[in-house]
Design a protein around this nucleic acid. Structure first.
Lengths: 180, 180
DNA sequence: TATTGTTATACTCTATAACTATA
DNA sequence: TATAGTTATAGAGTATAACAATA
């Protein structure tokens, strides 16, 4: 075929450039597209350290959480990361199998585990973090460092407005209702 | 009051409002959290116009695309929205079933369809768009209009750097490699 | 285009076991 | 003790979205 252009649209010469205008300014659409871009660019760019290719986003998140906040229970992980407790189970399974965390029963409350990061876990996390920095540089190359700062600040502010996890000083009493 | 706030634990150093610092500044993590927030806030806030609850994100996207850029083929839709052609099929099925678009064979090339939006389709889109605006106001309440503008601009710039669909004047020859 | 199937993620529901509080 | 209520984990199952293989 000669060209894949629209047959009967003389005013639209180019085959597939930009998505339609109204969407181009819809923040939720843009965030969704950005997420898809991140997914595409992340593929293969981050160490997964697993023949089966596990150790993806959520698993790394759990590992980072335990590494940063010290020994904690699975319940606490699920609260910090706002993940479903049911999903944390299998993620910790993977981490434990890889030797990145260890499950010990908490003697104070034997219902819960005490998750401990291993040295291997910290090593993996360090490698992953470095790869993440390179990825970010590539991903957000068009933004100046100041803009990058503004960008993350704005997201944190939006998140904090709806989610007490992102407030500076712990869960506050003010919520989304204030400005709604 | 159903705040899923972290449980107060006297034996834990700081019972833990905010996720750990390194993550708090990682843009890709923040974007992922923002996406989850959008999902949560969107639930029930947008008209789905379907007993089965279809007409979700992707279907509306396809409808908006056809509505904004005029009659086009499914292949063109998949290119504009960077969706898998296989997924466009079932989305158009839903839209057709709802009476929002019509499939006509393109007389110029009978292999492809010519998708046309119906009046019902435009009506639904208008309602949906209005609900979307209200949702955005609630979602991004902490940002000033200027910041909102900067925010969307920055995302578009980042997207354009990796994806020719988002360049102003159609697919250009310059790509991510230029500044990488 | 269409069909079929796979995978990742997020969420729902239920079950079991261990804890807490109280009579 | 006994009883009831709560919490931590586990497991099965569902829904959406992205994607691969093939007709």
């Amino acid at each position: 075929m000669a060209h894949p252009g629209p047959a009967e649209r003389p005013d639209c010469a180019h085959p597939g450039p930009a998505p339609h205008e109204p969407l181009l300014r819809a923040p939720t659409y843009l965030v969704a597209e950005l997420t898809k871009l991140i997914r595409r660019e992340s593929a293969g760019a981050l160490p997964c350290a697993d023949a089966a290719g596990r150790m993806r986003g959520p698993a790394v998140l759990v590992l980072a959480c335990v590494a940063a906040e010290g020994p904690m229970s699975q319940r606490q992980v699920s609260e910090r990361l706002r993940m479903d407790p049911a999903d944390v189970v299998s993620l910790v399974d993977v981490l434990e199998e890889r030797g990145y965390v260890e499950r010990h029963r908490d003697p104070a409350d034997r219902r819960r585990y005490r998750l401990d990061v291993t040295e291997d876990g910290r090593l993996f996390l360090a490698r992953r973090r470095e790869a993440g920095l390179r990825l970010n540089q590539r991903l957000f190359a068009p933004l100046t460092p100041e803009e990058m700062e503004q960008f993350t600040d704005m997201i944190v502010r939006v998140l904090a407005h709806h989610d007490p996890r992102f407030t500076e000083h712990g869960p506050s009493e003010t919520g989304p209702e204030d400005a709604a």
